[in-house]
Amino acid sequence: MSDRSWTTRLLILAPYLWLVALFLVPFLIVFKISLSQTALAQPPYLPVFDVSAGLSGAVDFLGGLSADNYRLLGSDTIYIFSYLKSLQIAAVSTAIMLVIGYPVAYGMSRARRAWQPLLVMLIILPFWTSFLIRIYAWINILQRDGLLNQVLMALGIIDEPVAWLASDTAIYIGIVYSYLPFMVLPLYAALEKIDYTLLEAAADLGCPRWKSFWLVTFPLSFPGIAAGFLLCFIPIVGEFVAPDLLGGSETLMIGQTLWTEFFSNKDWPAASAIAVVLLTLLLAPILFYERLQQRALTENR
């Protein structure tokens, strides 16, 4: 270790410094606020740590902290419902994306080599437009006299306009549309890596095509499924824009609840507590994925 130059050390240190400065420290601040009480002050919570008050000030400060906000989260059903709704929307839309994204990724991986970069481009293309603009476009499409109703009525599928907006359906449409590339790309990466001779070998050993998909292709695409699941599920749980712009007032995802606490109620401590609990909830799938990766790594040795 001692022969490592200081530049090497700095390089190794850089990501840790980054994480400490931009993740751990902010998190600790948020965690501290979540233990405070709301107050009509600047900043709008108490206690505030005052260095000039010395040791007794520190004791007062620690004494002022409490877990009241967490008790509040447990006592009011609105929070529990928001969490559950968020998990539900995230789970269902991730499942829908898997069902839509898998065939898309599979088709891409089986397309001609020369075409594949183009197909990947097409998947990434929507990112060139702002996420917010794309959601607003969906408002246009889904509104009463929007494109969707016009097309459906022209085709004679419906007789009068359907109210798509302000519903869970609209949230699902918006979320599935915006996150689908994050599902397709890791799936494609996993499927594209699968050696075609493995499928020939399966056929050679007496396995018909449809079966070799389930016995060979599908299990070998697990890493892609796991990566796609996490890349979609985690951000969707905290999603704010799609439910706020497309959803109805009766659907509250945790991101919206947090926003209300923070901006409307000016209750920073409660908002911070919501954020801390959300993070803890999301740690579970991340740790699970870490373990999967760790296992894959050790197996490759």
């Binding site: 050696d195 001779t197 493995l198 020939e200 070998a201 399966a202 050679d204 050993l205 060979v216």
Partner: peptide, 10 residues
Amino acid sequence: NMMFQSYALF
């Protein structure tokens, strides 16, 4: 049955 050059083990 065929033995593949790359072995093609699952």
